[in-house]
Nucleic acid binder design. Structure first.
Lengths: 360, 360
DNA sequence: CTGAAAGCGCTTACAG
DNA sequence: CTGAAAGCGCTTACAG
């Protein structure tokens, strides 16, 4: 069934059918009703490709999740608790705005080709990229496509430094620095002085921000950053687990608290601690980041920094749609607050009885 | 940049450019290289809509997650641990086959319109529907579209009863009945006689199968099904939690083991039990279903029935692509085994000391 | 208010 | 082996 068929049945021209479909004002109510009835009767739906080819929007946005450092261990994207809620929210919000979502995941640099193609082949009106690695060249390439694009979690200064047309671009971030600062100060207020960190991937904006806040906050409070307490976790639980085990088995003095750059790694840390009979929070405090679903359901319930993922996703979808519609788009950035959710994985520092006795 | 531009630059016609792009044999190596070079130089990508309009495939499959009973409590789809891994796997597998995935979620009957449109507007080559509710009418409507379609988790007999052309259809199920049977027999072997169940949504195939296996297995072992021990959970954790609390607070004798129709609900049950000081597995055994990620990370680690989600997703993607390609498609069904993963949430039944004393 | 016609950017018989 | 032309199903000036 094509518009031509509808036209014939309704006794009008294709032009008029098109006008009705696109809700143009210049068609009398009577004609409109007549055409609409035929359309209804035959469950007619205009071919989306023909429409797009003739200049209409595709009503589809692309959602690309970049998870490159996961490649090696064959972890799948939604297994990484960080992406799932973003994807969830973006799909949901887009759908509620009448927009389809085209999803593609990027595990390796080569997969970026498909992302570019989605734009170049005009499959989508615009796109959202979440989890971008630091590789400015790839981002530059995407931006130079000059299609509506929203980057979630990207270093604004890095983009600003580039000489590119950014008017079709928007960046949505969370205040990871402030959230981390709140977490570290919470530990300090609890009395901790030896605070370790499990780093995220330093090739991501989030990873760098969280680490910077950790070390700045310690510094501001006159606390030394102990190199031994900096564990490279790469946001990966296996990696974090191994690093924590290494630290615990080192025989050297331990920190009394650990800030983990994400929950996945924090949970691994708690597992490693449990296996070695070190109880959380009594003997070691642990704070995570992201506040994934799991956080509230493990034992002890994990204190974590919550990201306003839904709000961020909403901003991303709204912005990309606005960029698609606007005739005069303009570069913009958003930064949403993150906040500490206190649960049961932190306490005042453990006081070693043996030492007490010695001191006494 | 259009194929015409490439043609001019390469000194050939659009036809030849098209032949190169589509890898047709009837073009000399020399010409092919010449054209390819120009294409490369200009990062040319053929407009996907024009191609689709001219009869090519869209290289996009639709993935529709139906989660209608979740509407009321505004739960989002990926929050339901059941869908996430399917979506994950389908996206991953499709992407690795060079296919994009168009996602749309269905929370209310009205959302089905968008699913239908995706087919009618020819946005996709074929589709996969996961989590279908029992409503045969909706399924009938989808099937009658005569587009390549794979249903995950659907009652085959219900479809067979309908007089429809099913040659473009495939159904991918898991052996929930057998998996549940294994779980219940495991509990019986442990010595349990009073076994309760938290039901899933009886409007889903899985929900019905799991319940049927539960009651059949008890019957086969000469055990009575106690109506009080049948808790309607609808696959929703809040619902399950409330039902378990109601049972625990009833003052009546309790079962010694509970089989939950999914893990989400099993975990809620464990939470409810913990809050009332009933320890798992010592005083109550609990088995879940689905083996979601959380299962192995809560305390106690949850014994559960694992679904081969990756294999199911793979079958679904492969089948839908095959249906898209085949000139003579034919109806097929798949049924993948589910198996019990023993962990720490089950034990021999709790023996009440008081009663022992009385007996002694 | 409305139809005929051109155009969107491809692919594919068809003819040579 | 290769080009001219028709066609895919829409939308949109344009003319009336």
């Amino acid at each position: 069934m094509r518009s031509e068929d509808i036209a014939k049945l309704a006794g009008v021209s294709r032009s008029t059918v098109s006008r009705v479909i696109n809700n143009y004002p210049n068609v009398p109510e009577e004609t409109r009703i007549k055409v609409l009835k035929v359309i209804e009767q035959h469950q007619y739906e205009p071919n989306s490709f023909a429409r797009a080819l003739a200049g209409k929007k595709t009503d589809t946005i692309g959602l690309f999740a970049i998870s490159m450092n996961e490649k090696e261990n064959a972890t799948r994207i939604y297994q990484n608790s960080y992406f799932a809620p973003f994807i969830d929210a973006v799909v949901d919000i887009s759908n509620s705005r009448g927009c389809y979502v085209l999803i593609h995941t990027v595990y390796a640099p080569g997969d970026f080709l498909k992302v570019k193609q989605a734009f170049l082949q005009k499959r989508i009106d615009g796109g959202i990229i979440v989890g971008t690695q630091k590789d400015i060249d790839i981002v530059k390439e995407m931006v130079s496509l000059e299609a509506p694009l929203v980057l979630i979690d990207y270093d604004i200064s890095e983009i600003m430094a580039e000489h590119l047309d950014k008017n079709h671009l928007a960046i949505v971030n969370s205040k990871d620095y402030e959230g981390t600062t709140e977490a570290i100060e919470y530990l300090i207020a609890l009395g901790h002085r030896d605070i370790g960190i499990i780093q995220g991937s330093m090739s991501t904006y989030s990873g760098r921000e969280r680490f910077a806040a950790y070390s700045d906050t310690l510094g501001r409070h006159g606390l030394a950053v102990n190199e031994r307490f900096i564990l490279p976790g790469e946001f990966l639980k296996e990696r974090a687990y191994a690093e924590v085990v290494k630290l615990l088995d080192s025989g050297e003095p331990l920190p009394t608290a650990i800030f983990s750059s994400n929950d996945d790694m924090a949970i691994s840390a708690i597992e490693a601690l449990a296996e070695r009979g070190i109880s959380v929070p009594e003997q070691m405090s642990v704070i995570g980041f992201d506040d994934v679903q799991l956080a509230a359901r493990i034992h002890p319930k994990l204190t974590s920094v919550r990201l306003p993922i839904f709000e961020m996703s909403k901003a991303a979808v709204d912005k990309v749609m606005e960029l698609c519609d606007s005739r005069q788009p303009t570069f913009s950035t958003f930064s949403f607050p993150a906040r500490l959710i206190e649960r049961d994985s932190c306490a005042r520092p453990f006081v070693d009885r043996t030492q007490d006795d010695e001191l006494a």
